[in-house]
């Protein structure tokens, strides 16, 4: 399991493959005000990025992987939702 779910937060660690996509989607649809923790994550499949981007999930912990942090993180709603609005 590279994605662990608890009440509020989804924790992605290591490489998250496409197989996780349906469950993640379902969880995000049911969770109220979900948070995403990518601190241990090294890679996200395109499908996962898509889901995170399209969801309301907010990023609480950024990944250390340079590729992820540079190009993927901006696609995910930051912890402070207003921050993203003003970015646009």
């Amino acid at each position: 399991m590279t994605i662990v779910y608890d009440d509020h937060t989804v924790r992605c660690s290591g490489v998250c493959p496409i197989e996780e996509a349906p469950q993640l989607l379902e969880w995000l649809q049911n969770a109220a005000d979900p948070l995403v923790d990518l601190s241990d994550c090294t890679y996200l499949h395109t499908a996962i990025v898509q889901i995170l981007h399209e969801s309301d999930a907010r990023l609480v912990a950024a990944p250390t992987d340079p590729f992820l942090s540079r190009w993927i993180v901006p696609l995910i709603r930051p912890a402070n939702a207003q921050a993203k609005e003003s970015q646009r």
């Binding site: 496409i18 996509a21 993640l24 989607l25 649809q29 499908a47 399209e54």
Partner: peptide
Amino acid sequence: SVAMEWRQDWQTLCEGDPFSCRV
């Protein structure tokens, strides 16, 4: 630089198909 464009307008989650590539 890597930029992503989205094939569709931002969709609500329920419409999103996890297995279709929209980027």
